[in-house]
Design a protein around this nucleic acid. Structure first.
Lengths: 152, 152
DNA sequence: CAAAATTAAATTGTGCACAACCAAAACACA
DNA sequence: TGTGTTTTGGTTGTGCACAATTTAATTTTG
């Protein structure tokens, strides 16, 4: 496809659309993650939240909903109920920051911290599903990073 | 990142995850599409359905919900209510196939067919948002196609 | 042919995403 | 200082995605 065909007509074909590929691939990824994460009692977005908390080691320190939203590019309309579900599962605790009552701070519980051990194998397992080499993965990652930067 | 670091620990970092990039990029794409599609009264998944119907020229011929689901990789739990919303907007019509009463057939209305004209500019417009060259787009598309094939 | 298995949609329930709106708290600064 | 603005999180409503179940129709097979 060149620019003129895109502008004229064939651009409307599903085949030609980058966005449809990203959309399909994201759904497909989700289906591969689902059974693996189910063993930990997590959905994919919940897993992302746990990744941030594990990475930050938020068992002594805390992170605000705002900061979490910045990291994951999600707003409070998504995060608030999600965090409440994780709190109900005893994986984290939420409490208002006494210094700034607008802010809600998130901390891992012991159970939430320990769940990290069970998640250790997931990245390698998911990598194997892609059928890619490490080198290909790197290249694709950096292309997607460029695209993210361009579109943000 | 090499295999041993992935297997050991750093693999759990958000930074390293292909899937998070796809997930973020898909959401970002959706946000760029939303205002453009709003002018046509469509959401992104609704736009995808319309793309299939336009491509197939389903104004004389019809396509079943099943076939639509195969093309878009969506099940009836998603498509049924979505198609009812598009029918309410008079963009398409649904009716049971008399030859096989299990199947529901979808046809464009005149209004649905005419909406294609207003959508002509969207692919080029969205392409410009990516900031990519045609050549880069091609390469990325084929890498994503490989990944889709590997994971399906 | 009749019973069993398969297929196609729809329905129900859960969990994101996100827009739009709200309330409370903190901040700015004239 | 008091008042207008900004920040933060929450709530509500809409629309996907998808698992699980249901219903009806068709196909397979014994």
């Amino acid at each position: 496809m060149n620019l003129s065909t895109m502008i004229k007509n064939e651009g409307l074909q599903l085949e030609n659309q980058l966005c449809f590929r990203l959309y399909s691939l994201t759904k497909l990824m989700g289906r591969h993650y689902a059974p693996v994460l189910k063993k930990l009692g997590l959905t994919y977005p919940q897993y992302l939240v746990m990744l941030v908390l594990w990475e930050n080691n938020n068992i002594t320190s805390a992170i605000s909903v705002k900061q979490l939203g910045d990291k994951l590019d999600l707003d409070s309309g998504t995060l608030s109920p999600l965090l409440k579900r994780l709190e109900k599962q005893q994986l984290l605790r939420r409490h208002r920051n006494p210094k700034d009552e607008r802010s809600v701070e998130i901390k891992l519980t012991n159970a939430g911290c320990q769940l990290k051990v069970e998640a250790q194998g997931i990245p390698a397992q998911m990598f194997s599903v892609t059928g890619m080499s490490i080198d290909e993965l790197h290249k694709l990652n950096s292309q997607l990073d460029n695209l993210l930067a361009n579109m943000s």
